[in-house]
Amino acid sequence: MRPSRTSYPLSWRLMDALEAIAAAVWPRSFSAAVPWLMLLPAVVLVGLLVLGLWDMADGSFRTLDTATFLPSDDYSLTNYHRAFTEKLFFTVASRSLIGSLIVTAVTLIFAFPYSYVMVRTRSTVLRKFLLIALFLPFFIGQVVRAYGWLIILGSQGMVNEALGLVGVSPIRLLYNYPAVLFGLVQYMLPFAVLMLAPALTAIPEEMESAAGSLGANWVRTFIHVVLPLAKPGFIGAGLVVMTLSLTDFAIPAILGGGSQDFIANAIYDQFFRTSDQGMGATLALLLVAVGSIMVGVVFALFGAGTLAIGRSK
């Protein structure tokens, strides 16, 4: 009888060929260096980031010379002083901070039932639909999506036209704080769902059955069992949503129409409108610092959640 074709699959033959080439190019005696070599690209990329940060740190101590429009040669803390005292920066910073917290809370509340249904449904059709609905917005991109909201929510947009049909005069739905927060929640939802889903998958369904047989209705099962067990997912999702919305640029710019700037918009203005690179660098570094502190506080209070990596103890 002829041996089965799958007893030595084609992919194995391909791997054999690749291994032969690798052995010729890279002698076996060098093999100890291979893991380090593979690490190199990532190290270079992170290293460049550090270089850039260092450069910005240097720039942040130089003020803009209004006569030459060049950064000064001498160092001073003027930029930092301005960042903490000028009302504009305080407004922008608190707007972004409070906004990111509200967006995080609302997104988590919306994302939980979505992930729960996606993970627990017995219908594969529903699960696929929910997954596709989740990934589709990723293909569209943030700017295009924000313009989509302009079309829908504008003064002559679909919503106002529909309101007009029932005799309601047009309402200003855009260029205000709620519009920006709405856009951010809509943008962040897939991230949160994707971070929550693995945490919910990790909770055995038997846990919920057990809570039921022990006398808990679904509300108490949710509060006493599902929520505590899903905590790592909430932390992971919350951190991702919080940092992404704190640093977001496109949605405050487009849906805020210049009146609802977040920190990233202020940084952009400093770099590309007023050409004050020193001030821009200062704001950027402060943003990095604030974001890191917030993440650090969450880690200290609740642990790293699903973002915890390394060998489990």
């Binding site: 038997e206 059955s209 057990a210 809570a211 039921g212 047989s213 022990l214 209705n217 069992v225 067990l229």
Partner: peptide, 15 residues
């Protein structure tokens, strides 16, 4: 949760 039944599950399902 309204039946008076104690159940020991296959994988125990301890919290």
């Amino acid at each position: 949760h309204k039946r008076s039944i104690g159940m020991v599950f296959q994988k125990l399902a301890l919290f």
